[in-house]
Design a protein around this nucleic acid. Structure first.
Lengths: 108, 108
DNA sequence: GCGACTCATAATCGCTAGGTCATGGGTTCA
DNA sequence: TGAACCCATGACCTAGCGATTATGAGTCGC
């Protein structure tokens, strides 16, 4: 019974994580940031340069993406560099879409 | 040039559609509704019975899912029956995740 | 046509999300 | 050490979201 409860807890936690991921993806700016990072990692300043939004705004978006585990950052001198968290996207994707029969034939 | 503009318009429209889809998915209740509908189609009343939420609230959630084209409804007598819009999920999935190299090896 | 049933919509409320400007903390270099 | 640069965070405002209750619109059986 304790095992079942633990299983439910894990399920709930992953459900919340999944919700975080979808919330992160449900904004056009954040989608665009991910596309920018697909090519290569970038500094915050480089990312800001691609939008007509203030630096704090982009910084907020980046923290949402980081909270959803979709990006990873590290400091290099004065700059903070963001890159895609490879694997996180595909993992979430399989986790959710794998539940649906109509998606089975699109997943490996 | 007109062709390019038209292409951009299509891109923008699909981008907005994708945002709608992710917004629809970014709520735990709506995720749960989709899982319920995975097994079989259900009336609104049946869906409401699975939650501790009012009927209007569920009705709102259903309209969000419908607006995102993730579900389809039709009336049958007094009831309105909802079912998954098979294909819409997998299409959106490929449309977005196909952009990322790290997802390529998970998609067919 | 009328009451009963099923579902959608209108009006409303509290909270979260996304934007801004101002400011603070870390790092580099002279 | 102090100035300059890069980025994150605090304070704030507005708009949108999720929930509710009340009500309206279709449909069925009598």
């Amino acid at each position: 019974m304790a095992n079942i409860d633990r299983g439910i807890q894990i399920f709930r936690r992953e459900e919340r994580h999944l919700t975080k991921v979808f919330k992160a993806l449900s904004d056009g700016t954040r989608q665009e940031i991910l596309r920018l990072l697909e090519g290569r990692q970038r500094t915050v300043g480089e990312i800001v340069g691609n939008f007509n939004l203030s630096q704090p705004t982009i910084s907020r978006h980046l923290s949402v993406l980081k909270e959803a585990d979709l990006v990873v950052d590290h400091r290099q001198g004065q700059n903070v560099i963001y890159r895609l968290n490879d694997g996180a996207l595909s993992t979430s994707m399989q986790e959710f879409f794998g539940q649906f029969r109509s998606c089975q034939d699109v997943l490996r």
